[in-house]
């Protein structure tokens, strides 16, 4: 098991800064997801770790050793790509064997590792098949087996599920997590899908414009986003216009003090999740527009009288919700509300 750290990496493509003084430290055996919108630099960060991109500045350490100048084929990284990457001229077993041959392992050891890898991804029966005879999900499982068979220091997963349909995606996501935990391999998982990142990771790193906005366990990223960007990017968020006056935030008649807002007086946007919103007589006057039953929860959309914005309130599924057209008051869990200008 090996730790991974990137220290102050800067990578540019022409005039575009892909990674801007980017640092990240990952513990041994940990799975960290890099989550962010397209062009935020998450794949570039992964490619810098793999050795496919050379940073303008900064260093990559694997198990404490500086590998910044080590070429990609000597880094001992296992990588699963977004697009199908099985070698079409080799069958499943030969694909897995490829990395073992380059390491000059004995035929006995190669055979053992191929069997182990196939068992890990439960594809023993498909050992002799070629990539065109496998489904997308099977191909990605073989790619995973191939990457793990070399016993890599770090497993790099570059949006490995994005080409798959929803059902296979969800199954394979759980499988990747199980295999990663079983093998104890340090892993970096790049995705733009927040559900994927939140469900699979020990920690999630949310990226924006080449920088790490927040690196924390999934629950923390979701419930206590460190910035308005993270709050907006991860999960659903209500944005309500308000005003700061002497440290107090006011939306119409509703006033509260937020421990997470240090804004100067003036207009402000309040960011709060639907589940941190409730019906309360001291809250913002609003009219119910619609209620959507989601099984375990109910989503109630209300139109605030003082704002053009719709506020979504999430209630437990068993609670009786107000009828559309009825007048209500909405307030927030003040400890969870964030503000942005």
């Amino acid at each position: 098991m090996t730790s991974l750290s990137l220290e102050r990496i800067t990578k540019t493509f022409g005039s575009t800064i892909a990674l801007d003084d980017f640092s990240l430290a990952i513990e041994s055996g940990e799975l960290v997801s890099l989550l962010g919108p397209s062009g935020c630099g998450k794949t570039t960060a992964l490619r810098v770790v793999a050795g496919f991109e050379v940073p303008a500045r900064g260093s990559v350490f694997v198990g404490g050793a500086d590998v910044s100048r080590t070429p990609a084929h000597r880094r001992n990284m296992g990588m699963v790509f977004q697009s199908y990457s099985l070698f079409p001229n080799m069958n499943v077993a030969q694909n897995i064997e490829f990395g073992l041959r380059t390491r000059r392992l004995s035929p006995v050891e190669r055979k053992k590792r191929i069997e182990e890898a196939l068992e890990l991804v439960q594809l023993q029966k498909q050992a002799k098949r070629y990539s065109h005879q496998l489904s997308g999900g099977q191909q990605q499982r073989v790619a995973l087996a191939r990457a793990l068979a070399i016993r890599p220091d770090v497993l790099l997963l570059d949006e490995p599920l994005s080409a798959l349909d929803a059902k296979v995606r969800s199954t394979l996501r759980d499988e990747i997590r199980r295999i990663q935990k079983e093998s104890g391999t340090t892993a970096v998982f790049v995705t733009h899908d927040q559900d994927e990142a939140l469900s699979i990771s020990d920690r999630v790193g949310v990226m924006s414009e080449g920088r790490l906005e927040q690196l924390a366990p999934p629950e923390v990223v979701y419930s206590s986003p460190s910035s308005a960007f993270v709050a907006r990017f991860v999960g659903t968020i209500n944005e309500v216009d308000g005003v700061v006056e002497n440290g107090t935030i006011r939306v119409g008649p509703y006033q509260f003090r937020s421990p997470r807002s240090g804004r100067a007086d003036g207009p402000v946007k309040i960011l709060v999740r639907p589940e941190h919103t409730r019906f309360d007589e001291t809250g913002i006057p609003a009219m119910v527009r619609q209620t959507v039953f989601m099984g375990a929860s109910k989503l109630v959309d209300v139109q605030a009288e003082v704002s053009a914005r719709v506020i979504r309130v999430q209630l437990p599924g068993h609670v009786t919700s107000p009828e559309p057209g009825s007048r209500v008051n909405v307030s927030f869990d003040e400890t969870k509300a964030l503000t942005d200008q």
Binding site: Y84, S85, F87
Partner: peptide
């Protein structure tokens, strides 16, 4: 063929 991916997959598996 997906030249870039095949090349990078091969290199990540230790092939020059």
């Amino acid at each position: 063929i997906d030249l870039r991916t095949l090349t990078e997959a091969s290199r990540s598996l230790g092939a020059g």
